[in-house]
Structures are given as structure tokens and as C-alpha cells.
Design a protein around this nucleic acid. Structure first.
Lengths: 214, 214
DNA sequence: CGCCATATTGTCCATTTGGACAATGTACTA
DNA sequence: TAGTACATTGTCCAAATGGACAATATGGCG
């Protein structure tokens, strides 16, 4: 029996996964967490072999949680749960030590296969994804900032990065655990610093400066 | 006397340039055109040595005009007039054979110096701009399209490229000589093909696919 | 201890955007 | 010739965004 834990902020996703996992042979669902912080709290008690980890969550996101887990529980296999294909966050997650990824609309077989593979220490990645991971820079942490980057505050960068993935203010607010109004405030500040007046223009600048890539 | 011609769709710009050029020694303003098409019509009669060329204009844009001029009047020096620094359109214009570029808020001295240099056959480019021109691909024309590119029609690409520069629908419509409604139609089509539902998301995809760079 | 940067949130309103219905003309192709 | 793809434009409305006024709290620094 493979001990599996779920970390996802969406109730529906958790329920759906539970339904699938509880009826799968050789898999035991040992617990669930609603965000990265809760995941770290519960992991010792639940002692999972595999963690299905969402990336975008309030309080503590999946990337941060993965980094902590790699340090404290390197033997646990982490599988990223993501909505979109080729998500930059997913790349970062894989760089941080996740062992695979799953689209949230994966088939039941795909899901179960991936969990088994992760438990056995294998990595299941599409080749093109693997190539992207290997070719992109390893250091995820902040480093010598470029001109544009240094102008922005940490929070503004977070907001801008989500906006650059096409997220709406409402979604950004939810993911950062703040109100939509605050998101707008950060965006306004960003626009001022960039000398633009629309999110599309800001995203374009970010894209051209290469702030998205890496 | 250097015979200079202006091609720009903005009355204010033309007026401003005229004011400067008419009081400059050794420079004779021989005519003005409101877009690329008119420029090509007038160029034979006006016989300019230097053409100041805007890039974004209705009917026929500056890039197209430059390509025609290079073919039929290679002796004419073309100087690009642009609003922004490091504009991708400017790069393409320079690749198409323009001999220099001017920001529209250039100083009077800068403007006159550039015209004199262009007339003498010199090229006035900031080093970093020159580097970008040389390092980018030479062929501006359509070539083997990437996955994402091939999905889109020519027109959709035009719209998307402007949107990716932060332009609003109204501006895009004006620059392409169509209505705002049509711009929205193209965007809707693009969103469908990309599987997104906002221009920011579309711009982000374009940026990640590298469709902006080159 | 006050100043400053930062983060946070509020209301109100004009503009922009996205989507749902469309329709028309042109050009190419089976 | 009929069908298809494409570009074009229309109205109407809901949602999202941008900007103008804000205010409050926190933490660092001189």
C-alpha cells in the first residue's frame, strides 16, 4: 500500500482525488491539507510516501512547500498537481525537487500510474518538459536583480508574475490571500514605475525583459 | 540643402517637425505624407534625399513603405520616427533598410544631426540597438511557422503583436485601419485558439512562445 | 520619536474588455 | 458551383480594469 497525501485548496479537487484514490488498488489515502503550511504541519503525523501537491494556494504555495519538504523529508515523492500544461510554476516546482506532475483533468489511469511510478522513485515527465527543466536556470532564489526587477517590491513582483500568467485580479487576490483592491493598488504602483497604463503593457514589458523566463 | 520629406499620420508631429526643419540650416522640407501609401505616391515628384518615416500608420505602414523604397529608390536615406525606444517594429524597419531612427521627443539638435548624417550616408545607431539588429534574424518575411504561429491568421498575428505591445483595442484599430469591433473579433478568435479568455493571458503565451522576439 | 517605504483596504466612476447573439463580402478550393 | 476560410462590422450587456480621491498599520532608520 502506497501512502498518499493530498495538498490542494480546492475542495472539489480533494473530493475528486479521494474518490479515485480510495478505489484504487495498492493506494491508501492517509490525509489531506488545504495549503502548503497545513501540509508541512501534517506531514510528520501522516507519514506519506507520495504527496500530490497543488502549486497555487493561499498562505503557503506549493513551491515553498516543496522546498521545505525536500529539505526535511527528502524520501517523500512529490507530484505536482496543475491545471495548465507548461506552466512556469510547474517548471519551478520540478526544479525544486518534485518528481512528476499531473494535470488536474488527468485520467484515472494516468493518476494511478503516476503515483505508482513516483513511489518507486521513477520520474514521469514528458520529454519536452524535461528538456525545459534542464535547460532553464537552476537557481530559483532571488539573485542579482535586473534593472526592472529591482524597481519593484517583492509583493509587486508576486502580483505581476501572476498577472503575467493571465490571471485576473480576483484570482491573484485569492492566491495571495489579499483583497482584489490591494491587487489593484500593487498594479497601479507597477504601472507608475513602468510608465504604462494597462496590464497588457506591463506584461509585455515583463516578457521582453525576460522576467518570466527562469 | 538636404531635401527632406516627412511621413507621419499625426498632424501634430508633422507640424512640429516642420517648425524645426524650416528653421534649420541646410535643410529643405520638400513635402509631407500621411501614410506609407501616400509617401510612395509623392516620393517621385518630391525627390527627397532623406525621408523621416513613422512606422505605425493606417493604410500602409512604415515597414512596408521602407521595403518598397529600398527597392525603387535605394539612394534615399530613411530615418525611422518612433515613439518608444527599443521597439520591435523599429528593429524590423532597420532590417528593412532604414538608416537611422529618431525618437519623437528627440532634441532639435539630435534631429538635425541625424538628418545630416543620414544624407551623408552615415548610420547613427546606438550600439546596443545595432547589436540587436545584427543578432536578430534577417528574414522578416513569413517562414516556417512554429506551432503557435501557424494557428493564427496573418491578421490575427498583426492584432496580437500590437496587443502584446500594450496597445488598446482603439489604438490597434486605428493602426490597422479597421474598426474596434473587428479588433475584438480577431482577439476573440485568438483567445479561442489559445484556450484563454483574456488579452493578458494571450500576451503571456505569445511572450513565452518567443513570438515577440525577432 | 517622527519620517518613510510598504502593504493593506475602502468607495466611486469612466473606460475597456469579453462574450453573445448576429450578418456581409471576398477569395480560394473541392 | 457550393462550400470554406477569412476579414469585416453591428448591437447589447456583464465583467474587469484603471484612476481618483482616500485611510490605516507596520517596521526600519536616522
Amino acid at each position: 500500500m502506497i501512502r498518499v497525501m493530498i495538498t490542494d485548496d480546492h475542495l472539489i479537487v480533494r473530493e475528486g482525488l479521494r474518490l479515485i484514490l480510495e478505489t484504487a488498488d495498492g493506494i491508501e489515502l492517509v490525509g489531506e491539507a488545504k495549503d502548503g503550511a497545513e501540509c508541512l504541519e501534517l506531514v510528520k503525523k501522516l507519514n506519506p510516501q507520495v504527496i500530490l501537491m497543488d502549486l497555487q494556494m493561499p498562505r503557503m504555495d506549493g513551491i515553498t512547500a516543496i522546498e521545505h519538504l525536500r529539505k526535511d523529508y527528502p524520501e517523500i515523492a512529490i507530484v505536482i498537481l496543475t491545471t495548465y500544461n507548461e506552466d512556469d510554476l510547474m517548471i519551478r516546482g520540478l526544479q525544486s525537487g518534485a518528481r512528476g506532475y499531473l494535470l488536474k483533468d488527468s485520467s484515472r489511469e494516468n493518476l494511478i500510474d503516476t503515483i505508482h511510478a513516483a513511489a518507486k522513485g521513477e520520474t514521469l515527465l514528458k520529454p519536452e518538459i524535461l528538456a525545459r527543466v534542464l535547460s532553464s536556470k537552476t537557481s530559483v532564489k532571488k539573485e542579482a536583480a535586473t534593472q526592472t526587477e529591482s524597481i519593484l517590491t517583492e509583493r509587486e513582483l508576486e502580483v505581476l508574475q501572476l498577472a503575467s500568467l493571465g490571471e485576473r485580479n480576483k484570482e491573484i487576490a485569492y492566491k495571495l490571500g489579499i483583497t482584489e483592491r490591494t491587487v489593484k493598488a500593487h498594479l497601479q504602483s507597477i504601472y507608475q514605475k513602468f510608465g504604462v497604463d494597462s496590464r497588457a503593457a506591463a506584461v509585455a514589458i515583463v516578457a521582453q525583459k525576460g522576467m518570466l523566463k527562469e
